[in-house]
């Protein structure tokens, strides 16, 4: 009965889809909203607020910053929850414009799957969490353990490698979503829960008794997580890359959501701040945006440090330390290329 509607929509879609796929930015401005792929639910990183029906979290903040830079409105984002299985196809098929879903930057994803990683917003590594009652102090003691893993991630492969290299046996219990993995682990259906260390901390914070569980010291892999876009549209890739860099640089330069209005009002002493905030030079135009793009991106949720502190930092229940994710000036790895 609704065939007509479908046909109507199809005709409209066909007319609208005349534009070439290389112009993601135009598609987004025409549509008036950014389609951003996020996790279906991971505390601190991407979470649907039960009361407000609004998406919140560390990954979500990146989407909002990009939307603010391109469309001028941090709320102009359509969040598309994607599972591990569909995330890359959703991106490749154009269903989403960018993916901000704690996705590890790997060689084969970049080269073989034709994805473009635009930077790293979180340096992570795979860890293990066990109940303290088991008395395990090292991952090498885990011979014969039952391990809960989320399928479709690099964790699965790292895990197989780790246990094979150390010549110990284990029993994998593959699980679709983080929520179900948590349930299984809490009910003792598996001895160990493994995922990225940030994810472990996030999960642990939501346990009824977080103190009963310990995260083992071993980090068995490098997991650089970052937003990614399709191969082939470099203009769009640049916008996402430099929006992320703007957030990082803003923290380094001391630009916060509190002082940004003052700093952006008139050119100040620091030329790099001036270039970043568009009071000097024409960096925005080079990106195909206006001069205020970075101001809007930073105002959306604050600079990198503010986003971190607000969603996953030590003051939140998740309580992650900055660690590797501190600015390079503070001994971390965050290092934005210069705005010049």
């Amino acid at each position: 009965m609704k065939k007509t509607m479908m046909l109507g929509t199809l005709t409209v879609a066909a007319v609208a889809a005349g534009a070439a796929s290389a112009q993601t930015v135009n598609d987004i401005t025409d549509r008036g909203s950014l389609n951003c792929g996020v996790s279906t639910g991971l505390t601190g990183f991407a979470e649907l607020n039960q009361e407000t029906n609004r998406w919140e979290g560390f990954d979500v903040a990146v989407c909002r910053a990009v939307a603010a830079a391109v469309l001028g409105d941090p709320e102009a984002v359509t969040f598309v929850p994607v599972t591990n299985k569909v995330r890359f196809t959703a991106l490749n098929s154009g269903e989403i414009d960018m993916l901000a879903r704690n996705t590890t930057w790997t060689y084969s994803r970049d080269v073989d799957l034709k994805l473009e990683f635009t930077g790293i917003n979180y340096y992570d590594g795979q860890g293990f969490m066990v109940p303290a009652a088991l008395g395990v102090s090292s991952a090498k003691d885990l011979d014969g353990a039952t391990v809960c893993i989320q399928t479709g991630t690099t964790t699965e492969l790292n895990l197989a490698d780790f246990f094979r290299v150390n010549n110990i046996s284990y029993e994998p219990v593959p699980i679709e979503t983080a929520a179900e993995a948590k349930q299984q682990f809490l009910d003792g259906a598996c001895d160990v829960y493994t995922t990225d260390a940030s994810g472990l901390a996030a999960q642990r914070s939501s346990f009824p008794n977080p103190g009963d569980y310990v995260i083992l010291p071993e980090i068995i892999s490098k997991e650089p997580l970052g937003p990614l876009v399709r191969h082939g549209d470099n203009e769009w890739g640049d916008i996402v890359r430099w929006t992320l860099n703007a957030l990082i640089a803003a923290e380094e330069l001391g630009v916060t959501s509190a002082n940004i209005d003052d700093l952006a009002a008139a050119p100040g002493d620091n030329p790099e701040i001036n270039r970043l905030l568009g009071t000097e030079g024409g960096l925005g135009e080079m990106l195909g945006l206006d001069a205020d793009w970075a101001v809007r991106a930073i105002k959306a949720g604050g600079n990198y440090g503010e986003i971190f502190a607000q969603n996953i930092g030590e003051a939140t229940p998740i309580g992650l330390a900055r660690g590797l994710n501190a600015q390079w000036t503070n001994g971390g790895l965050l290092y934005s290329p210069p705005f010049r």
């Binding site: 246990f163 994998p172 191969h231």
Partner: peptide, 28 residues
Amino acid sequence: DLGQDISYEFLGDPAGYDINQKPIPFSS
């Protein structure tokens, strides 16, 4: 456009993951 192709060569590559219930011997 995506620079991909259709090929079944991946079936011959090492899987890299473990399976818990294996009626025949299987390793990663």
